[in-house]
Nucleic acid binder design. Structure first.
Lengths: 335, 335
DNA sequence: CTGAAAGCGCTTACAG
DNA sequence: CTGAAAGCGCTTACAG
C-alpha cells in the first residue's frame, strides 16, 4: 500500500520494539500475543522485509548465480529450476551475466562475496587459476556447474560415459568412418571429456577412421564447417557433432548441397534440445537432464551454507534419444 | 583480495573521511590530490562499493526486471540486451522470475519499489487492474514490455501491421481458405491484435474462409490441435500459427500423417526463431526485433529516471522472412 | 521473551 | 572541497 512501510511502522503499530519484529520475522521465539499483533500489523501494511537492508545479518538469504550468458539452449531451463528451488527455500537468487567475459566472471566472485551473498553458483565454461584464487580468497561457498573444479565442489554432466555410449552405438550400426565436428579443448567438459568418450566408444566398436574438424558453439560456424566437410570426396559416413546446434548446421549444409540424411550422411548431436525432434529426420542425440543438474547445484550450495557434507564432484546422467538421422547399416555385434 | 575492504578502509588509507570517498565514487568534485590518494587506495584494495549498502541513497542504481519466465524463445535475447545496456550505464539489473504467477508479478512491483530500485521493466503477458493499482501506488517508474498499458508507458511489437502484412501476402499467393491456430484473447498483443491484423490482411485479399482453432503457447498442445485439424476432410489450405512454436507442432503432425508442406498444406509462423530456418522446408514467418525492443525498454526506463520525456507507446517494427512453407498458387494482384 | 543500543556499508545535508 | 554526524532498514549481542 504505502510505498514505505518499514519494520518501524510494524513495530509501532504492534506496540513492540523493532528488534522483536525482526525476531518474529526470523522465526525466533516471540510471545504469542506479541506475535499476533505483529502479524496483524504486517498484514495491514502488506509489509515485507527489504532483503538489501540486512547489512549486518549473518545470512543475507541471497545466492549469487554467475552465468556466461542467457542465450544458450539449456540456460533458460537451468535458470528456471534454480530460481524456483532457491525461492522456495527462502533465498533470493541474484543473477550476474558475464557474456563470457572471464575477467568479469572472476571479479564477480569477489563482488558477490562482498555483497554478502550466502553462496555462489558459477555456471562455468572453463576454469582458470584466477577462478581458483578468487574462490580461495573468500569464505563464501562456491559451486561450479558444468566443469570439474579440482580445488572445490562441482556438478557436471557425465560426458565420458555419454560419449562412450553414443560412440558404441554408432559402431554397432555398422558405420565405419566418423567425422567429429567439435569445439576447442579450452572447454574441458565438452571439448575433451565428451570427445574422449566418443573416441573410446568408437574404438570399442572397431571404428578407427576418425577425423576431426574444429568449429565452435555457433550455428553460423557450424554451417561453414559442415559445408566444407560435406563437399569432400570421401566424406565420413557419420558426422558426430559436439552439440545439437552444430548438428543443425550440418542439416542446413546438407540441404543446400542436396544430400539426404541419413541416406547420404548420418548425423548426431548432443544436447537433446526440444527442437531436434521437429527436424526431418529427427536428430539422434543424447540428453542430459539440465533440470536435475540445476536442482542439485542449488541444493548443494544450500547444504554448504548449512555446513552439511557434500560430494566433491557429482555427475549427471543422460538419456539416449534415437532419432532418424543415423543410417542403419549391417548391425555389428560387439564383444 | 581481503574479503571485506569497505569504504572505511579506503578512507583510512587515503587519509580522508569516508564521505569524501563516497563523493569521489559518485563523481562529485574532490580535490585533485585527494582523488589521487583515494584512487590508489581503491586499487590497492580492489575496492568496489557494495550496491546493497546504499540504503539511504537517492538513486540505488538498480533496475528491477520482472519476467514471466526464462524459458521462452525470445526471453534470452531480451535479457542479454537489457542486461548489457543497463550495466553499461552503471546500473545493476535485478531479475525477478514470476513463472507467470500473476499475483507474484503484481507483488513484485511493490517489492522492487521497496527495495529501492530506480526503475522497473515488466515483461508482460497481460495486464490486470491489479497491475495498474500496483504501479499507481509507487513513485518508481515502470515500463511495460510486450503489452499495451493504457495508464502508463509501454513498448511492444507492431502486431497489427505485421499480421496485416502476412495476411495480404498469403492472399496474394492465391490461398483461399485459412485456419488460424491461435492463443486465447487474454493476451491482447498476440491473442487479439496479431490476429486482427491477419484477418484484416486476408480480408483485403478477399479471403473470407477463415476458421479458428484454439491452442496455447506450448508445443505439445500445438501438436494435438494440428493433428486434429489436419485430419479434417476439407482442411484449410494454409495454417497460420500464432507463433513459430505452434507451427512446429504443425510440422510434427504433418509428418506423422504423411502430409507434405507446402504441397498438401501451407504453414506460417510468427517469431522468426533461429531454428525455423533449419526446418524442411524453412518456415515462412515474421520476425520482430526483440533486441531493439529490449534496448528501447532499458533506454526508456533510464530516461524516465532522469525525468526526460518519453512516448507513451512505442511500437517495434518487423521483418518478413519468406521460407518454403507456403504454396505458391496463382498469384493474385490486389487492388 | 523483550527493549535499548550499537552496528552493517553506504549517502546525504550541513557547517565550515 | 571536506569532515562529523545522522540516517537508510534491517540484525545482533547484551542486559534484564
Amino acid at each position: 500500500m504505502s510505498e514505505g512501510a518499514t519494520i518501524n511502522d510494524v513495530a509501532a503499530m504492534a506496540g513492540v520494539a523493532k528488534s522483536t519484529v525482526s525476531r518474529y520475522l526470523n522465526g525466533k521465539p516471540v510471545r504469542e500475543d506479541s506475535a499476533r499483533r505483529i502479524q496483524r500489523a504486517i498484514e495491514h501494511f502488506h509489509f515485507e522485509a527489504n532483503p538489501f537492508a540486512r547489512l549486518s545479518a549473518k545470512q543475507s538469504k541471497m545466492i549469487g548465480v554467475i552465468l556466461p550468458g542467457f542465450d544458450s539452449t539449456v540456460t533458460p531451463r537451468v535458470l528456471t529450476v534454480m530460481d524456483k528451488y532457491l525461492r522456495t527455500k527462502g533465498y533470493w537468487p541474484l543473477f550476474v551475466n558475464t557474456e563470457s567475459d572471464i575477467a568479469f566472471e572472476v571479479a564477480s566472485i569477489g563482488n558477490l562475496a562482498r555483497m554478502n551473498v550466502d553462496g555462489i553458483i558459477l555456471v562455468a565454461s572453463f576454469i582458470t587459476p584466477a577462478h581458483r584464487r578468487a574462490v580461495e580468497s573468500i569464505r563464501t561457498p562456491v559451486v561450479f556447474m558444468g566443469q570439474e573444479f579440482d580445488a572445490g565442489i562441482s556438478i557436471l554432466d557425465d560426458n565420458l560415459s555419454a560419449g562412450e555410449m553414443l560412440g558404441r552405438h554408432l559402431a554397432e550400426q555398422g558405420l565405419r568412418s566418423a567425422g567429429l565436428i567439435w569445439v576447442t579443448e579450452d572447454d574441458i567438459a565438452v571439448g575433451i571429456r565428451r570427445k574422449e568418450g566418443i573416441l573410446r566408444g568408437l574404438a570399442e566398436g572397431g571404428v578407427t577412421d576418425v577425423r576431426n574438424y574444429l568449429a565452435d558453439f555457433s550455428y553460423a560456424t557450424a554451417c561453414d564447417v559442415a559445408r566444407r566437410v560435406l563437399q569432400q570426396k570421401d566424406r565420413p559416413e557419420v558426422l558426430i557433432c559436439a552439440t545439437d546446434r552444430i548438428a543443425y548446421g550440418v542439416y542446413k549444409a546438407a540441404r543446400e548441397l542436396g544430400l539426404r540424411i541419413p541416406e547420404d550422411v548420418s548425423v548426431t548431436g548432443f544436447g537433446g534440445y526440444d527442437t531436434s525432434e521437429v527436424l526431418t529426420p529427427a536428430l539422434t542425440t543424447i540428453r542430459f537432464n539440465a533440470e536435475d543438474e540445476a536442482c542439485i547445484c542449488a541444493d548443494t550450495v544450500l547444504k554448504l551454507i548449512q555446513g552439511e557434507p557434500v560430494s566433491k564432484t557429482q555427475l549427471i546422467g543422460y538419456r539416449f534419444l534415437p532419432g532418424g538421422s543415423v543410417r542403419r547399416g549391417q548391425p555389428v555385434f560387439l564383444k
